[in-house]
Every structure is written in structure tokens, then in C-alpha cells.
Design a protein around this nucleic acid. Structure first.
Length: 445
RNA sequence: GCCGUCGUAGCUUAAUAGGCAGAGCACUCGGCUGUUAACCGAGCGGUUGGCGGUUCAAAUCCGCCCGACGGCGCCA
């Protein structure tokens, strides 16, 4: 027999009937008795009165604890609580301009859930200290705001693709093969066999479309590159899509649609967070279709016009990306790169065999947000590209089968989710777009 | 991988030209009936990242190592 659920409030302030602090700050409980539960954000003790700023996931409100309203022993215990102690407070809500936020709870009762030890994070902290204490720092308003936006972004990606008729498809994280030549992989000891953490869902997705049709995923990708920049993580979240019968125009439209949908959802749900983070809300609001599209050749000419030292065949570095994105007031698609600087699986343009049918979507401060392409469908061309890059085609046998049994035109792209969050929130560093960042120099906590 | 900056108390930092390592915050104790990162008084807290060298004397100068941060390259 299943144990009976205990609905009775057996101790202290119980487990039911608590309100979100946000509601108090919106004036919804003024004059009424409420219960809240959360953590002490700050405390000020002036003798016969203690002010506690109580935080819950929705906000911070001041609670006043008057000495004559409590038993001596309890008052002393509350008085001694340190920052981040958890507690429940009961009392009447009053509108009072002396209180931060305009409302306060005049406590009639309080239950200490846990008296915190001395919290390691106070004011004046170095980046290093905050990263060492990341598990505690994610309690901060700043991190909470970013992670709220992040949650909206993930939801918006799922919503967008599902609304457009794409199905969710998973590839393995452990994989025997590389994906993009040059990118380095994290090796894993798989019972004495060498396998790697995946860099991309794509190759498996190209097998998946034959059954499911249009598919997408949100999954972690791993890059073992010692990239010391504000835009790189070794473990990041990748939104990828692969569309059957899709061509370059289709994935441009699909990329634009996704980015606009994400921005729209975040503006709808997290405007307060964006304001607190000092993001450029006006810029985000101004975005609409279509995004400008230029070819690689045009990009080179434009950069040369701006006196940048680039020549045909160069890939764009940070200064080039910065200049290029500054020439447009919206994200910009750059298409038709020379095949030499792009991956083996990209299809050549029919009108110019030296170019590939692919694009990068670039935005200011962050650089590349999306990389997409039409995929090569001929098995011979693909083997040749692999050999040219010094890869052993035999490792790719199963993948090459996707070009042997009813090969079809298809295309897809990958979007770096932390880069999108960085762009939306105007973050200086990508590490703050993820709760526990992994970078070449840090894999802890 | 390359270039640069930095490492002093739990945290943030000061220390003239190589000459007694000092403060703020936090914490502990005491005071205070409306605080706003409260305030006032006292206390606790240091192998100056590590190893070696120069010197009568090193946080400070030199060498090596470790760690962090910033920029470039590579990429999403």
C-alpha cells in the first residue's frame, strides 16, 4: 500500500500558501497577511529592529523584524542570521516608501530553515573568485537574469522548429569520427577503443532525414581547441537543423526566421531582464526581415573599400568581422565562400565550382552566429574532398552510404546558442551565457 | 599555439627609490527603534602563488615553474 501523502502542516510555517515575492512588489497583497520563503539577500540590524531583504526566484522584498513582536530567543537567532540563510517569513504586507521596492513585510512570525555559514561572495569580487564560486554566483541577480533569457531562448528554438514542422532527432554524443576537418576532438577511452565527444549532430542528421524528413536538435557540442577568446567555449549548446530538399534560400530563410523568433520571444518574456543587463533593447526591437545577404566576393570588395588589408581567399578574422557587421544595422548573411576555407561536406555552386553553397550569419561583437550549407550529394566528390584534406575516407564509410542509396539534395545549419545569448544580452564574455562554463583553462566547478 | 598584464588576510587592495607588510569589506564581541551595500567602538585574521638566486636587507630585482585575466589565431 502506498504511503499516505501528508497534507498536514506539521511544523513552523508549513509548506503551503506561500506567495511569490514578485506579486508583493506588484502590489497584489498589500494590507494582507502573506507567507514567503527564500534566502537572506542582505541584513541590517539596528538594535531593536532587524531589516532582512528576502530573495526568492522572483524578486527581493524587505521584511522587518521588530524586537517586541518576537520572543527574545527567536529575535536573537534571526538577528544573528548571515547572508544566504534560508527562511520562511509570515506577516502583513505594507506599502512603505522607506522600503526598497516600495513594499515590505511586517513579520509576525519567521522560521529559520537553515542558518548559512559565512557566504564566500560579498561585494568587490574578481572574475577569478566568481568563477571559482560559480555554483554560488548563479544565485546573483545578474546570472539569474541571463539564465532566464537562456531558458526563453531554448524554448523559442524548440517552438520555432516544431511550428515549422521539424521533428526532434538525437545523434550520439560519443562518436568514432570527426566532423569538420581541422577542428580538434576530445578523445574518450571507450573500452580501449578511441572515440570522441561529438562536435556536431550533422553527420548523423544527414542519415536521419531519410526516415524522418526535416529534423532539428538542441545538443551539446565539444571542441578541444585552446581558443582563448570571449566567444569560445569547449562545451557549448548547438541548435542544428537538417532539411530535406532544402536549398541555400531555404536555409537562409530558416536561419533568419529562427533568429527573429528567438529575439521576439525574449523581448516578450524577458524585457525586464534585458533592461537590467543593459542590453540594447531598441536594436533588438528594430530587427525584422529581410536580413541583408552578400556574397563572399562582395564582402571582400566592401572590406577593401574600407581600407581593410584582405585579399581573395582569406577567411575573415576578428577585425574583418567587426568591420563587416558594422556596415549593416541587422545581422548579415555572407554566402558563397571559396571551397578551400570551408568544410568537405559543402556542395559547390553550379555557376562557380570554386565556391560553396554555404553561409555564415554574422552579428556585431559576437561574430558568427550561424554556419550553414547545402550538402554535397555525390559520393565521389565527397571522397575526393576528404582525401584532399588528408582524411581517411574509410572511417566515413557509413556516412558515405547516405550518398549511395537514393542520395537527395538537402541542407542545414548550426547555431551557437551561447553566442545568441551573448548577442541578445550584450555580454562581454560567452562564459556568462552558460551556468557552468567550460573553457580551455577551466573545467570546474 | 603566440603576445601582453597580473598574483599581498576569506574577499577587494596599499606599501616613495630594495628598508618595521597597512587598510576597507566579511566574520566575532559590544552599542543603537526605520535601515537602504546602515552606522559607531573593539577584536580575530599574513610562509606577500611556488622553488631557487642577488643583497646586510626582497611583496619589490633576476631565473624557472604554476595559476588567472586580456588580445590574436582557429571556430559556432
Amino acid at each position: 500500500m502506498a504511503p499516505k501523502r501528508n497534507e498536514q502542516e506539521t511544523e513552523g510555517l508549513g509548506k503551503k500558501g506561500f506567495v511569490d515575492i514578485e506579486e508583493i512588489l506588484e502590489g497584489n497583497h498589500t494590507g494582507r497577511e502573506v507567507k514567503v520563503r527564500g534566502w537572506i539577500h542582505r541584513t541590517r540590524d539596528i538594535g531593536n529592529m532587524v531589516f532582512l531583504n528576502v530573495r526568492d526566484p522572483s524578486g527581493v522584498v524587505q521584511a522587518t523584524i521588530a524586537k517586541d513582536g518576537f520572543k527574545e530567543e527567536k529575535f536573537e537567532k534571526i538577528k544573528d542570521l548571515l547572508v544566504e540563510s534560508s527562511l520562511k517569513v509570515k506577516g502583513e504586507v505594507a506599502e512603505d516608501e522607506r522600503a526598497p521596492g516600495g513594499y515590505e513585510i511586517r513579520a509576525s512570525d519567521a522560521e529559520i530553515v537553515h542558518a548559512s555559514e559565512d557566504f564566500p561572495i560579498h561585494k568587490d569580487q574578481s572574475i577569478e573568485h566568481l568563477l571559482d564560486n560559480r555554483h554560488l554566483w548563479i544565485r546573483s541577480t545578474e546570472m539569474r537574469d541571463i539564465l532566464n533569457v537562456r531558458s526563453t531562448v531554448f524554448g523559442a528554438i524548440h517552438d520555432y522548429f516544431r511550428c515549422e514542422g521539424y521533428k526532434e532527432f538525437q545523434s550520439p554524443i560519443l562518436t568514432p569520427l570527426a566532423c569538420e576537418g581541422g577542428a580538434t576532438l576530445f578523445p574518450v577511452d571507450y573500452f580501449d577503443e578511441d572515440v570522441y565527444l561529438t562536435q556536431s549532430w550533422q553527420l548523423y542528421a544527414e542519415a536521419g532525414i531519410f526516415g524522418l524528413g526535416d529534423i532539428y536538435t538542441i545538443a551539446p557540442s565539444f571542441r578541444a581547441e585552446k581558443s582563448r577568446t570571449p566567444r569560445h567555449l569547449t562545451e557549448y549548446w548547438h541548435a542544428e537543423v537538417e532539411g530535406l530538399w532544402h536549398d541555400l534560400d531555404d536555409i537562409i530563410e530558416l536561419g533568419e526566421g529562427l533568429v527573429l523568433n528567438i529575439a521576439e520571444e525574449v523581448l516578450k518574456k524577458n524585457e525586464e531582464e534585458l533592461e537590467r543587463l543593459d542590453a540594447d533593447v531598441e536594436y533588438l526591437r528594430s530587427l525584422d526581415e529581410p536580413f541583408p545577404i552578400i556574397t563572399y566576393d562582395e564582402a571582400i570588395y566592401r572590406l577593401q573599400d574600407e581600407n581593410m588589408d584582405v585579399k581573395y581567399g582569406d577567411d575573415f578574422g576578428v577585425p574583418e568581422e567587426k568591420k563587416l557587421t558594422s556596415l549593416f544595422d541587422k545581422p548579415v548573411f555572407v554566402t558563397h565562400y571559396p571551397k578551400e576555407i570551408k568544410a568537405f561536406y559543402m556542395k559547390r555552386a553550379e555557376e562557380d565550382e570554386s565556391k560553396v553553397l554555404g553561409y555564415d550569419l554574422m552579428v556585431p561583437h559576437v561574430g558568427e552566429l550561424i554556419g550553414g550549407s547545402v550538402r554535397e550529394t555525390k559520393v565521389e566528390s565527397m571522397i575526393k574532398r576528404l582525401e584532399d584534406e588528408g582524411e581517411d575516407p574509410s572511417i566515413y564509410e557509413w556516412f558515405l552510404d547516405t550518398r549511395r542509396y537514393g542520395s537527395v539534395p538537402h541542407a542545414g545549419y548550426g547555431l551557437g546558442i551561447e553566442r545568441v545569448i551573448m548577442w541578445l544580452c550584450d555580454l562581454d564574455h560567452i562564459r556568462d551565457a552558460i551556468p557552468f562554463p567550460r573553457t580551455p583553462n577551466r573545467c570546474r566547478p
